[in-house]
């Protein structure tokens, strides 16, 4: 995860809050949140290797598959639920979003923007499924099965009465994009803070 937007996430999470990171990888974000924001951290990851690494950083970590459901988490049992670069790989993104907002008082999601100009131009000029640093797989082996642009995400939020509390856009190197008006064209990654 880029250090730049990790810094933004840390600044968005309130002190001493209960934070659930779905797809926590090796637990680095939660480790830093614990260090700087003294949060009560819970991580979830599908890989044994990641779970081991995360536990060895002192993070309570549960091995699990997000696609198999989150029903055992109580309503509003977390202040913040984080879902970083994961929404596009799950089978039912809308259901997951609704679950995030049931479990958490708010959610921070980080998603790749399929509306980025380079991706658009690849499909336009080459006529082939586009790839970039964030989306580097071939179409037949990609875990990214639900790709969308920033405008698509915003439509989905609006249709489902999900409020956007904050939106941050980044270039591929993780540095912030200044021209928000052209976000759907110029940013590669978007961060939304959402609430229901």
């Amino acid at each position: 995860m880029s250090k730049l937007y990790q810094k933004d996430i840390i600044s968005l999470v309130p002190d001493n809050s209960r934070v659930l990171d779905l797809g926590c990888a090796k637990g680095d974000l939660l480790y830093n949140l614990k260090k700087f924001k003294h949060i009560h951290a819970v991580g979830v990851d599908i890989s044994t290797e990641n779970v081991c690494q995360s536990i060895s950083k002192g993070i309570s970590t549960i091995q699990g598959n997000i696609d198999e459901g989150l029903s055992f988490y109580d309503d509003k049992s977390f202040d913040v639920v984080i879902l970083s670069q994961t929404l596009q790989v799950v089978r039912n993104p809308l259901k997951l979003l609704q679950e995030l907002l049931r479990i958490g008082k708010m959610a921070i999601i980080i998603v790749p923007n399929f509306g980025h100009w380079r991706l658009r131009s690849q499909i336009f000029f080459k006529g082939r499924m586009p790839k970039n640093k964030t989306l580097q797989y071939e179409w037949y082996n990609t875990p990214n099965i639900h790709l969308a642009s920033i405008k698509d995400f915003e439509d989905l939020f609006a249709k489902n009465d999900i409020n956007i509390l904050e939106k941050k856009l980044y270039l591929s190197n993780g540095s912030p994009l200044k021209w928000h008006w052209a976000g759907n064209l110029l940013s590669e990654i978007a961060l939304f803070v959402i609430k229901k």
Binding site: V42, T61, I62, F72
Partner: peptide, 18 residues
């Protein structure tokens, strides 16, 4: 067991070793 501990807000880690 893990879910019951989580419901009670306890600190719990879980791994299902393949």
């Amino acid at each position: 067991i893990v879910h019951a501990l989580m419901h009670q807000g306890k600190e719990v880690s879980f791994c299902d070793i393949e």
